[in-house]
Amino acid sequence: MFSPRVLRLLGQSQKCRHHSTGTLRAMTHIQKSSQLPHVEPGKPFEVSKVIGDSMFPSLDKVSASDLVLKKLSNDQGKAWYTITRTRSGLLPVYSDIKADGSVKTVIRRIEGDVSQLRNDIKLALGISKHDIYIKDTSKQIVIRGDYVSHVKQILQKAEF
């Protein structure tokens, strides 16, 4: 595979130059994985109405409240977070059983201030700060020990 610079220097056909990075890379990608649909470059496409309306609505169809963060209480603090439910409507709190038999509690799907939520859960459970931590790459909270039902209870009380 050539870099786009090399392709240009080689004076490849116009089509090749155009899709210098994209298509060549995509082709290997598609051929090998066969996961992504094969699409002819530059082929006209129609945006489905559902996607057009839901992801790119016109300005007059969007209310001002859609564009700002919605606080659900009168709390004046700046920190906020939310935990979205899974597609099956459950709270994303799981137990992770390790090979040595120890159990960790994992909280997923957190948006907003993760460290604030960690602090609040730490207070609510009354556990040490060494037993609760954030996985920074995935924004998950992990608690050492099985606190699944406790955490779910806390989150249900807070109406997540």
Binding site: D66, L67, L72, G112, D120, Q153, K157
Partner: peptide, 26 residues
Amino acid sequence: NAVSSLTSKRFINIAARKATPANYVL
């Protein structure tokens, strides 16, 4: 006692900080 303390004021912070982010960006 532990459970009742959970249901008292400790979790109030959590409910108060609940918010939903904007549905759209401009």
